[in-house]
């Protein structure tokens, strides 16, 4: 494997309104002193899709999961995560509130072992929404937003585990959307899906940019280029390049990025 100079990088700050940004984010797993993520400083534009790409083990999930403090239990995280003028990587911050604003969808669909509608209403009820009608509305809207409504509208009381993988994943997206988050983090949401479901999902995500800021990890470079406005390339725990998606895929500044997007990597 060719070794690249990790200190050589090219990172832009998008001119658009910024929804979320990180400043010198470092992640250490366990009690180790080796950083799995080094000095990541990125700004994510509002109401856009940003893609995170890079080889396996390059730290994409590590970075993404740090953004809504999902790594709290297993990692030590240094640096700033700025959201609405607050550094949400501070121990004083209420992580539950953070996660309501910054939702997450995982690589493997993980619906609860409950009915389809309960999957969506469970967290809403916990958040204090008890009005039956409002709950029903939220179920319907979020399922529509996730492009699942037509397929399940007659089976809302059926177990979510009886859905297909692709449907389960869209249900997970609906579940996250029902919380009306500001930002949606997706970690390889399409990796378990067939091409048709993947296309559906991509269309859905594009639609969602009307109301949501989306950050998505993907291994599929076509997917990244199809749906995202900005793309960040990760390598060995470093952000190597961050720019508009077109630039990353057509005229990258850094050799490593070039090699990766053209398939000559490693």
């Amino acid at each position: 494997m060719e070794t690249y100079d990790l200190s050589q990088n090219h990172i832009v700050t998008p001119p658009e309104e910024i929804a979320l940004s990180t400043n010198q984010l470092q992640v250490y797993y366990g009690s180790g002193s080796r950083a799995s993520m080094t000095d990541a400083s990125l700004s994510f534009p509002r109401f856009q899709i940003t893609a995170l790409i890079g080889a396996s083990g390059s730290g994409k999930s590590t970075y993404l999961r740090s953004l809504n403090r999902m790594n709290d239990r297993i990692a030590r995280i240094e640096g700033e995560i700025m959201y609405r003028g607050t550094n949400i990587n501070s121990p004083k911050v209420n992580v539950y509130e953070v996660r309501k604003h910054i939702g997450m969808v995982f690589q493997k669909p993980n619906p609860f072992a409950k009915s389809i509608s309960e999957n969506i209403t469970f967290a809403l009820k916990a958040a204090g929404i008890t009005n039956r009608q409002e709950l029903n509305e939220r179920v319907e809207t979020s399922l529509k937003e996730a492009a699942l409504w037509n397929e399940v509208k007659d089976d809302l009381n059926k177990s979510a585990l009886a859905l297909s993988g692709g449907q389960q994943q869209r249900l997970c997206i609906a579940r996250a959307l029902a919380m009306k988050p500001d930002i949606l983090l997706l970690d390889e949401p399409a990796s378990a899906l067939d091409p048709i479901s993947t296309t559906k999902l991509e269309v859905t995500l594009k639609e969602l940019t009307k109301n949501y800021t989306i950050i998505i990890v993907t291994h599929n470079m076509q997917q990244a280029s199809r749906i995202s406005a900005y793309t960040a390339f990760f390598h060995l725990g470093h952000v190597i390049e961050y720019d508009q998606t077109e630039k990353i895929f057509q005229t990258p500044e850094i050799q490593a990025t070039h090699d990766y997007v053209t398939g000559n990597f490693g």
């Binding site: 809504n68 539950y96 997450m104 609860f112 469970f122 916990a126 997970c172 579940r175 996250a176």
Partner: peptide
């Protein structure tokens, strides 16, 4: 993954465990 699903929705650990 079930625990992650719960806390990623802003549920407390306790609520995730219980519910």
């Amino acid at each position: 993954s079930q625990r992650e699903a719960g806390i990623s929705l802003g549920l407390s650990n306790w609520r995730t465990i219980r519910g």
